[in-house]
Write a protein that binds this DNA or RNA. Structure first.
Length: 519
RNA sequence: GGCGGCGUAGCUCAGUCGGUUAGAGCGGCGGCUUCAUAAGCCGUAGGUCGUUGGUUCAAGUCCAACCGUCGCUACCA
């Protein structure tokens, strides 16, 4: 019986096309799922789309179509994008999925029956143009900021989830489980939110009257209303693994790892735990919060247009390179900046010059000095032992860093093995040794060591750069895809068999020339 | 207004419980090399660790104030 691992991305709201933010979250989740799968855990990755709410209705009206059509169009766009980029999700959930509707309604009913949902009248200033109530912030001189008209006094009744009742429990739980929300800074923010709102009790409006919004899941206890925003969105994490009865639910839910951006910390750090507590469900294992990508303030080459679309990045640089950049450049939890020159610098330094070039020189020499097959190594000397030790150390470091959600550190570590191997090659200089009768005997050992180092590099890299990893293995004569649960075995030194036919192949990552305009 | 983060070499950042000459990567510069994607390897960068005061035998590393910067929040229905 293996351990379980359940990773989720947020469900993306269907009012925008996939961009760098969506892509980062999704890539992190995909990387984790792949890594844990390789580690032998039973894995499930969930992603999808959030499709209800006024904005979708608005768009549908503007276009003279239905919200269903708008939602479907974007949902497909997201799904096709992930498919095209090779994201290995296990389910793509939509908040309009029938099974999700059932789950949401059953949970609403359950919370309602428990007396945790209250019906209350709210009176406030309502802007007809905005079709919503305004706050002080929305107004300038008593007029609606957007519509420059006076709001009218209106009252409306709605259902409220009394989540404040769970605040003290939640605060205590977070204190007692220091790494539930990570990195630490976000845990502190959530604790701050809980104490700030204690004064008002913390009520979450979870409904909208149908006159105002009918695009949503109907409340099971009042058909004049639909469920509003976060309530039905968050529940997708449960629906995705078969809440409440299916066996996968018990397996996966307690092992849940949510990956989110810091913009949705409050719903995930406050609303969600309260909801779960209200229905008696355990909390996910971790709430993992990442920062934002700052897009470069300066010049963006115009010809590119939609620069940060993952599809555009794929076309221009290859998705593996973009994916590498995302995982390597951002310290999980902190903001990072993205720009084309930064991306290019990373590609050239790490992927082309170090990794790609090592693959080229190794395979080229294997071709020239070892008849194109993995040679049979002789006895190891100190230089070889260094590589073997480094490989073992790096494998351990990668494991540690992935588990503690430091993808950038894991990649740094892997690149350290590549560097060490480049250095080793310099030390052995097989291109000279091959021509020197006294040293020619060591060449097979040297090349074997490089090939083996590359094999382990590829294994370690497989969750990060799946296609590249497969390509390297394939060039080393290892064509079958990596099997689940093989990580531990495959990182052992000396597994590569002699005699396998190698393929030199074209450069793995061609150097990217820096365009004139970007100085 | 309240709370919090950040401010370390040109750039991006590491710097654990305070303790020998403050580190890495990239870029730049000098050299070596030619198997390789003009890639690689070796050497080099002398930075008031935002400012000013404290605590201490000893402070990027703790405290205070200030400056700069970013974020969250102020009863968003």
């Amino acid at each position: 019986m293996s351990e379980a691992f359940y990773v989720t991305t947020p469900i993306y709201y269907v009012n925008a096309e996939p961009h760098i933010g969506h892509t980062y979250t999704t890539v992190v989740a995909d990387m984790l799922a792949r890594y844990h799968r390789l580690r032998g855990e039973q894995c499930f990755m969930l992603t999808g789309t959030d499709e209800h709410g006024d904005k979708i209705l608005e768009v549908a009206r503007e276009r003279g179509t239905t919200p269903e059509a708008v939602a479907t169009e974007y949902a497909q766009l997201f799904q096709q994008t992930w498919d095209q980029l090779g994201i290995q999700y296990d389910r793509f959930i939509r908040t309009t999925d029938p099974d999700h509707r059932v789950v949401v309604q059953s949970i609403l009913q359950k919370v309602y029956d428990a007396g945790e949902i209250e019906f209350k009248e709210y009176e406030g200033l309502y802007c007809v143009g905005c079709e919503r109530f305004l706050t002080d912030r929305d107004m300038v001189d008593g007029l609606c900021r957007d519509h420059e008209r006076a709001p009218e006094n209106r009252s409306e009744s709605n259902y409220f989830f009394k989540m404040g009742d769970h605040f003290s429990w939640l605060a205590e739980t977070i204190e007692n489980n220091p790494d539930f929300i990570r990195p630490e800074r976000y845990r502190n923010e959530v604790l701050a939110m809980l104490s700030e709102e204690s004064g008002l009790g913390g009520e979450l409006c979870i409904s909208r009257p149908k006159e105002r919004l009918d695009w949503g899941i109907e409340l099971p206890f009042d058909d004049r209303y639909v469920c509003y925003v976060w309530f039905d969105a968050l529940i997708n994490y449960l629906t995705g693994v078969g809440y409440p009865d299916q066996s996968e639910f018990e397996t996966f839910w307690p092992a849940a790892e949510h990956i989110i951006g810091k913009d949705i910390l409050k719903p995930h750090g406050v609303f969600w735990p309260c909801m779960l507590h209200a229905i008696g469900a355990p909390l996910p294992r971790h709430l993992n919060v990442h920062g934002f990508w700052n897009l470069d303030n300066r010049k963006v080459s115009k010809s590119l247009g939609n620069l940060i679309s993952p599809i555009a990045m794929d076309e221009r640089y290859g998705f593996e390179a973009f994916r590498y950049f995302l995982l390597r450049e951002m310290v999980f939890g902190q903001d990072s900046s993205f720009s084309e020159p930064l991306l290019i610098a990373r590609i050239n330094a790490d992927l082309a010059n170090n990794l790609g070039n090592l693959v080229s020189r190794t395979l080229n020499m294997t071709n020239r000095f070892a008849d194109g097959v993995v040679p049979t190594p002789g006895a190891q000397e100190e230089a070889e032992a260094v590589i073997e030790k480094t490989a073992a150390r790096v494998a351990a470091e990668v494991d540690e860093h992935v588990l503690s959600l430091r993808p950038q550190r894991a990649l740094e570590s892997i690149m350290g093995l590549v560097d060490e191997t480049n250095r080793y090659l310099e030390r052995r200089e097989p291109w000279k040794a091959a021509k020197d009768p006294d040293r020619a005997g060591q060449v097979p050992t040297t090349l074997y060591t490089c090939c083996e180092s590359l094999r382990i590099t590829a294994v370690l890299l497989s969750a990060f750069l799946p296609k590249t990893s497969q390509e390297i293995l394939s060039r080393l004569g290892l064509d079958s895809p990596l099997e689940e649960a093989s990580l531990h075995d495959l990182t052992r030194w000396g597994l590569l068999q002699s005699g396998l036919p190698t393929v030199k192949g074209p450069p793995l990552f061609p150097r990217v020339d820096v365009p004139e305009e970007s100085k």
